[in-house]
Amino acid sequence: MEDNILEIINLNKNYDKFKLCDINITLPRGYIMGFVGANGAGKTTTIKLIMNMIRRDSGKINVIGKDNIKYEIPIKNKTGYVGEQPVFYDDLTVGWTANFAGKFYSDWDGAAFNELLTRFGVDKTKKIKQLSKGMRMKTALAIALSHRPEFLILDEPTSGLDPVIRDELLDILMEFIQDERHGVFFSSHITSDIEKIADYVTLIDNGKIIFSEEKDKILNDWKLVKGDINKSDDYRDDLVGLKVSKTGFSGIVKDIDAFKACHDMSLLTIDKISLDDVLLHLAKKENQK
């Protein structure tokens, strides 16, 4: 069995007004990767490329150890996908839709699907058009989980959902990943969700990968530095994504020891960093380039 459930190597895709540049991502089995970035950063495009819903211009994508174009059908057979706005035929019922989708999977488990629907509180006799956004998401997740997938790909699944449903969804992902052969690739711009469950975090901005590392390493290595507004110019070169407000400035730094060695720290405060801080400051840095 391949160690990596997802490998993206030098992936490129060009559109008229947007391009993905040399995307490299590796996700080992048994882990959840959060794919973070602002709206329009390239998350959905990357996911569509992984699912072979759009054609890549160059590069390579291996899913479950196999090329995603050459082995598209066996890969999709072992991959569960949930899009940002799950799409089905409006006039069909939940049960009919699942029954239809199940015909194409070799390992479809109807009993598991019914169990999940009961757990999620989704009525299988309801038509898709009668479902709320949260219910549609749960239906999509139930379908994605009922064919015994090894790999789950979720594109902004928590966007627009209320906190209770979001939390439920994160719990399900945590359950799924208990099997160490599984993997989850989960895009979101809600960093708190990623921070809660992800083992790896990949940040994408304007079609480029800013970093792709273990979450704990990111949160340990990077520090948030804050100081008085009048002194902000002294630190402009050494702080990443310097933000100046009426009350002061903030920036992030990866090697805090090297930073301390160069600056008088008595006027500064060092805080633990959140993924939101990293996202905001690194994205700001990219925009300043």
Partner: peptide, 16 residues
């Protein structure tokens, strides 16, 4: 219906 309900996107996610 494929166009209205974006059924084509749904089908592209299935192993077909």
């Amino acid at each position: 219906y494929d166009d209205k309900d974006r059924g084509d996107i749904f089908l592209r996610t299935l192993p077909i």
